[in-house]
């Protein structure tokens, strides 16, 4: 492998990894406020891509994306109000089953609305053949968009959770929702907000990567699984670590393609999941003590 080739693989891995990170961030935000893994998270990415594609026919790209993110966030909020809120007392098993059911419903609705065609948003700058030369590797300018948006999201989330009152309130809910309630935090609206936030972030990810990876009604399941692997790898409940884990998985996958057949790409990441689940369920960056207190 020449250095340029290696660089090429690295960029490909980082791009894919960023998509996984988008999904994993969504998992973590919801997990933090509710203790639920929302298996429908991948569907938000799909919805973002689909809705923005439809809207982009009627308006310029930027408002289409903003509107798509808002609509998906609203859908996320609605899902919380209609389904999740009633399920608060049910078992983890019940929650797993319900969120899987929701993901099937979203997927089938998308199939009904957008049919089986693969769609792609137009490139933000340039076209599919334009490329930027970085140290000999040729990459699409869209990759830079993906990386830029990922960094902005991560930075934004960090500031949001650290310095705003709402962000702090959401973190309080994750620490101890009863205590948070006693302090006058409206835990219900925090949970709702977390669903809207993660749906919106997922949708934004869906828009940004759509020109590169295309959007298909059934893409959510694969993303949900990859996102989950990344969330676990980074340590559940830690959105920032999820980004690092996402990049690791993306790089691993992109280099595995150069050795193994493409068809086995998913097998590698799932095996990583099984190993990490068995050996270190707290994740690469998670603390063992903290995770043993949580109820998975």
């Amino acid at each position: 492998m020449s250095p340029e080739q290696i660089l090429q693989y690295i960029f490909a891995g980082i791009t894919v990894g960023s998509i996984y990170a988008f999904v994993a961030i969504g998992y973590n935000i919801i997990y933090n406020t509710t203790g639920i893994i929302n298996f429908a998270q991948g569907e938000f990415v799909m919805l973002g891509g689909m809705i923005s594609f439809t809207l982009s026919k009627f308006m310029p790209l930027l408002p289409a994306i903003i509107l798509a993110v808002l609509i998906t966030a609203a859908i996320g909020g609605l899902i919380e109000i209609v389904f999740i809120r009633r399920m608060r007392k049910s078992s983890v098993l019940g929650m797993v089953v319900v969120t899987i059911g929701i993901s099937i419903l979203l997927r089938e609705a998308a199939l009904y609305i957008w049919d089986e065609q693969i769609r792609a948003l137009s490139f933000f700058t340039g076209t599919e053949i334009s490329s930027v030369n970085i140290l000999g590797a040729r990459i699409s300018p869209q990759v830079l968009w993906v990386l830029g948006v990922t960094s902005i999201i991560v930075g934004g989330l960090y500031l949001f959770f650290k310095f705003t009152l709402t962000g702090q309130a959401m973190r309080a809910c994750s620490e101890n929702s009863r205590a948070a309630k006693l302090c006058g935090i409206k835990t219900d609206s925090m949970v709702n907000l977390s669903f809207m936030l993660s749906a919106g972030i997922g949708a934004l990810g869906g828009c940004v990567v759509s020109p590169l990876t295309q959007t298909h009604y059934a893409m959510g399941t694969d993303l949900a699984i990859k996102g989950f692997i990344v969330a676990i790898l980074g340590g559940l409940g830690n959105p920032i670590a999820a980004v690092a884990a996402g990049l690791i998985l993306g790089l691993l996958e992109s280099f595995s393609i150069s050795i193994l057949p493409m068809a086995y790409k998913d097998v590698i990441s799932v095996i990583i999941l099984l190993i990490i689940l068995v050996v270190k369920p707290s994740g690469l960056f998670g603390s063992k003590q903290a995770s043993s207190l949580k109820d998975f």
Binding site: V92, L93, D266, V270, L273, L277
Partner: peptide, 21 residues
């Protein structure tokens, strides 16, 4: 040995491995 979400995902992961193979 895993519980809840982790068990669900681990078994699903096994299913995916077989499917992909």
């Amino acid at each position: 040995k895993l519980k809840g979400h982790y068990l669900a995902m681990a078994t699903m992961g096994f299913g995916i491995i077989i499917y992909r193979l």
